[in-house]
Design a protein around this nucleic acid. Structure first.
Lengths: 217, 217
DNA sequence: GACTATATAGGGATTAATACCTATTTCGCA
DNA sequence: TGCGAAATAGGTATTAATCCCTATATAGTC
């Protein structure tokens, strides 16, 4: 005996064409049922609020009038965290993807995705997992990549200088650093001076930013 | 007429069992041919160096003696950037995944992946794309998530205070800030004092770290 | 053996930041 | 209408950081 569980889906997209396309895509899928449609976020939210039990999953476009898919997602996750949200988009721009992630979307898919990928995404999400379009991983990772490239900047400093810098970043004064390292305050000040010169920074604030940028702390 | 292109694969894993498992997995795949095996990174690299044209793709485990899969990947990408690398691992720990990404791996897959996912990953990678296990996206994104959660910390500051803080982070002195905002230096100092109190920081360095942590700059 | 980098330490002066205060104006909210 | 928050400004004192010097010991390199 197989237990047949239907997942009721709410589609939100301001292009009727997309909604129709998705509907035809799910025509033969018994597990997924399109139980509602909306042409903007506001409308979708109203539908959910009028019967919060009706939908288990929302598939929403990003760019919609009145309320974007991201905002819709945020609202849903705040008020009805048990409802899953799959965000659709034309693009895989880093900021949109990050927005979706920060809105706690369960998935992010490009509109160019085929039926197989759609079904796979829905399977994963309804099973309590997440699904993100493959292309976005290198994109959201780019930032880290960039930082990593400049990692070696710290190597222009000597061991002692790195030690001092680390304590500076930890908000210790020259006097405290001197005590900690059993040095004269003057020595510490000289190290500071040298670190400033080597890194091309003008102030302690610059040093702190330099250190953080380069993975210290 | 179908053009049949064979992708020659080099397997690197220090568990023969895994190698054998992968070999049996690709037994019926005409598109992929296992053309080499190695039990550690050093061995794999030697095989490649002796005939760089032989392999189009390397599937490597992360943890191996002599040379880890990550190091192997880094070497391959530096010397033979045209060879694709798929990294395998038991875990989806954030640091390992990040290491793999920074080593410019074309894919990251868990050993628990089934044949279908393997084939899909190989298809994507040989087509010039990337494939990363779904589970890792939320993981590598966690950092950003955490920052985002504390984003609102800046909201405890008034508009003027945020303005002043922003200039502090840009390495301006109180006097410069005063000139820029057409204020008395005293006013700026008072703002600083209030910002310190509100944020619970003791020094300017603390403020800079607070600002960066919370997305300013 | 001379040269260079590193780590050490000091003198002396200036500028910047921090820690306490008080006080006025303006603006929104209860 | 009065209360509190925000923004403004000043006084005074202390501490910290920065700048510009000199100087010594040590270790490694050419």
């Amino acid at each position: 005996m197989t237990i047949e569980i239907n997942t009721h889906i709410l589609l939100a997209d301001d292009h009727q064409l997309v909604i129709d396309g998705l509907k035809s895509m799910f025509q033969n899928e018994t597990r997924y049922v399109i139980s509602g449609e909306a042409n903007n976020g506001q409308e979708a939210l109203s539908l959910i609020q009028s019967d919060p039990e009706k939908f288990q999953l929302v598939i929403t476009d990003v760019s919609m009038s009145h309320m974007t898919g991201i905002e819709l997602c945020r609202h849903i996750k705040q008020q009805y965290p048990e409802i899953k949200v799959l965000v659709l988009s034309m693009y895989s721009g880093v900021s949109v993807v990050k927005e979706a992630l920060s809105a706690e979307a369960d998935g992010y898919l490009l509109k160019s995705a085929g039926k197989d990928e759609f079904i796979q995404a829905l399977h994963r999400i309804t099973d309590g997992g997440t699904y993100f379009a493959q292309d976005i991983i290198p994109i959201i990772y780019n930032q880290y990549q960039r930082e990593k490239a400049h990692q070696d900047a710290l190597s222009i400093l000597t061991t002692r200088e790195r030690e001092v810098l680390s304590l500076i970043v930890k908000e210790h004064t020259s006097e405290e650093i001197a005590r900690k390292l059993f040095l004269s305050k003057k020595t510490v000040d000289n190290h500071r001076q040298n670190i400033l010169a080597k890194t091309g920074c003008k102030t302690t604030i610059g040093l702190v930013k330099f250190a953080i940028r380069n993975g210290m702390e």
